[in-house]
């Protein structure tokens, strides 16, 4: 299946936007402009971008704490993402959630989660509502390799399977749960074989191949609508530390360098040039567009007001 040129541009732009967003966010940390923490997905851009770009607006997602690529993939507004990152009133969560809790219900994101596997039962329930209402749409549940060892993983896949719910479970396997290699935390190499225990389909893909992820997600959506849940594992790598305080003593520089050669953005660029889809000049222009958008987002965020303590009780309870 050949993808339309516009889709290629979208994938390339969103991956660049994610990287630009995170590299800029990392700089804001160094400048002392950010109060909390952040978890960067640099090197994993193809996962969230590839999957979410293949969805429709009405399809829902639950995100992980390392999910800027998922949010950008689902067309979240980076101005409001950056504002939330800086804890501003104009942020997605009015400065109360920070980047671990970014959500945009209007584009189908039921939110990022600070708890490993925390979004899995929620995604299952969102899909239950879709099935109950006979919706044509599905829910995509993002989680990491670490979450695959939580009880919530087992309970959610089992429940979704027995009820045949329209949920696509997407495991971003970046090889480490914080500092612990999957070699130490599970006795299998291919996480997708766990699907067998729930009587559902499981596939494992190269998580740095955005074109293939996009295509497989389209197919997976049809499978999920017809047969119920499916487990899709995207094998990738986290270039940065777990969070801003990670000295990365648990892995070698050589290992990181090897994975950097598999950079999803570089690979997509090479593919686009080799196949004559875009010229160097055109791709440079896309890169410039992403950089400009992030610069504007920082400006928006920095010029936004701080939240007021007078509003602290807002939204603890709904009316």
């Amino acid at each position: 299946m050949k993808l339309p040129k516009a889709v290629h541009k979208e994938l390339y732009y969103k991956m660049l936007l994610t990287r630009e967003f995170e590299q800029t966010a990392a700089k804001l940390f160094i400048q002392g402009k950010v109060h909390g923490t952040a978890h960067f997905c640099i090197g994993e851009e193809a996962t969230g971008v590839g999957v979410c770009s293949a969805l429709e607006k009405e399809d829902l997602i639950t995100q992980t704490h390392r999910g800027h690529n998922q949010g950008i993939g689902k067309n979240m507004d980076i101005n409001r993402m950056m504002a939330e990152f800086l804890g501003k009133e104009t942020g997605y969560c009015k400065g109360k959630g920070g980047c671990m809790h970014i959500a945009d219900f209007s584009v189908g994101s039921l939110g990022a989660n600070g708890v490993v596997a925390g979004g899995m039962p929620i995604a299952t329930g969102a899909a239950l509502a879709q099935k109950y209402r006979k919706s044509e749409h599905i829910t995509v549940c993002f989680f990491g390799d670490g979450a695959a060892n939580e009880g919530a993983f087992h309970e959610s896949l089992n429940l979704a399977s027995v009820w045949k719910l329209p949920v696509l479970f997407v495991c971003t396997n970046n090889q480490y749960g914080m500092s612990t290699s999957i070699k130490k935390s599970m006795n299998i190499e291919d996480i997708s074989i766990r699907a067998t225990s729930y009587g559902i389909k499981g596939i494992a893909l190269d998580g740095n191949d955005v074109v293939n992820i996009y295509q497989e997600t389209k197919k997976a959506k049809e499978h999920v609508k017809e047969h119920g849940p499916m487990l899709m594992v995207l094998n990738t790598y986290r270039w940065m530390g777990h969070s801003k305080s990670d000295a990365q003593l648990y892995r070698t520089k050589e290992e990181v360098e090897q994975w950097k050669e598999q950079c999803p953005i570089k690979r997509h660029r090479a593919y686009l040039l080799e196949n004559g889809i875009f010229t160097e000049k055109e791709l440079d222009a896309v890169q410039q567009e992403a950089a400009d958008a992030v610069r504007a987002a920082v400006e928006f965020a920095e010029n936004s007001p701080e939240p007021k303590i007078e509003n602290i009780f807002d939204d603890v309870y709904a009316d």
């Binding site: 039921l110 899995m120 039962p121 929620i122 299952t124 329930g125 969102a126 209402r133 959610s156 429940l159």
Partner: peptide
């Protein structure tokens, strides 16, 4: 599966039920 039932209820509630 108390965890999944409770979370699924929350997720369904977030999606209109």
């Amino acid at each position: 599966s108390e965890l999944a039932i409770t979370g699924a209820a929350a997720g369904a509630a977030m999606n209109g039920l």
